[in-house]
Amino acid sequence: MKRAGFDTIWLPVALLMPQLLIIAIFFYWPAGWALQSSFYLQDPFGFGSTFVGGENYTSLLGNDQYKRVAVFTILYSVLVTFFSLAIALLLAIKADKVIRGAKTYRTLLMWVYAIAPPVAGFLGILFFDQSTGPLTKFFQMFGWDFKLGVDYNATATAMVIVAVWKQIPVNFIFFLSGLQSIPRSVREAAMIDNRSATGRFWQVTFPLLAPTAFFLLIINITYALFDTFGVIDALMKGEPGNNPMTLVYKVYLDGFRGNDLGGSSAQSVILMVLVLILTVFQFRLMERRIHYT
C-alpha cells in the first residue's frame, strides 16, 4: 500500500467489488463445492448422494488405473520439462551470442507460443499418421511399428514430442531475457578469469541463470500437468481406450463422461493440493528471483 493513499471508503469498495464477486461465484463456490462433494457418493442416476467420508480418496489410491495415470503424469511432466528446458536453453545461449540476425532468430523461435495446444495436436496427428506420417516413417526406420492411438508407448511419445515443441518458445523467451540481464561487467570479468567457454558457462552464467531456471521449472511442470490437455485430447482422437493420459484428463473423463462426481471431485482435490505445493515453491522462488533482476 502507498503511504500517500486516499482516504475515501466507497470508491475502493466499488472498485474491488467486480473482482471479488467474480471470484466468489466462479472460484470459491466451485472450489468449496468440490471439496464437499469429494466426501459424497453420487447416485449414478441422479437420486441424491450419501456421505461416505474418505472413501472416494481411499478407493482412488487403491485403484490400479489411477496409479497408472499418476505414474504416466509424473513421467510425462519430467520428460516434457527436461527436453523443452534443455532445447530452449541451448537455443537461448546461442541466440544471446550471435550478433547477426539476432532479432530474426528470436522471432522465428518464439512465434509458436501463439499456437493453441489442440491445433499443435492436430498437426501432430498428421506428422504421426499411420501410413503417411513422416515421423511415423522415421520411427519405422528403427524397427518400431509406430501406431498412434493404438500403441501405448507410441501415443505417449507423440504426446511428449508435441508438448515439448509447443513449450520451447516460452522457455526460450525467459532464458534469453535472463541471459540478457546479466551485466556486461560480470561477463567481461568472467572472460578475464576463465578462458574456456564451457567453464565460464557453468561457473558464471549458469548460477546467475539459476533463479530463472527454477522459476521455469515450476512453470513447465504446471504446463505439463494442465495446459497439455488440448494436445492429449487431440492426439488420442477422442478415444481414451488404452491411451496414456494425465491426471487432469482423467478428472475430465471421470467427471464428464463417466459421471463419477465424487471420484472426480476427489481427484480435483488431490490436484489442488499438488498445485498448492507447487505454488508455495513458486512464491518463494519469485521472492528470490527479484534479487537478481
Binding site: F26, F27, W29, P30, A31, W33, G255, M272, V275, L276
Partner: peptide, 14 residues
C-alpha cells in the same frame, strides 16, 4: 493457486 483445469467440474456445475 488453483487453475481452472483443477476445478473444472464444480465450475461447470456452477
Amino acid at each position: 493457486l488453483l487453475p481452472l483445469e483443477v476445478r473444472i467440474l464444480p465450475s461447470y456445475e456452477a
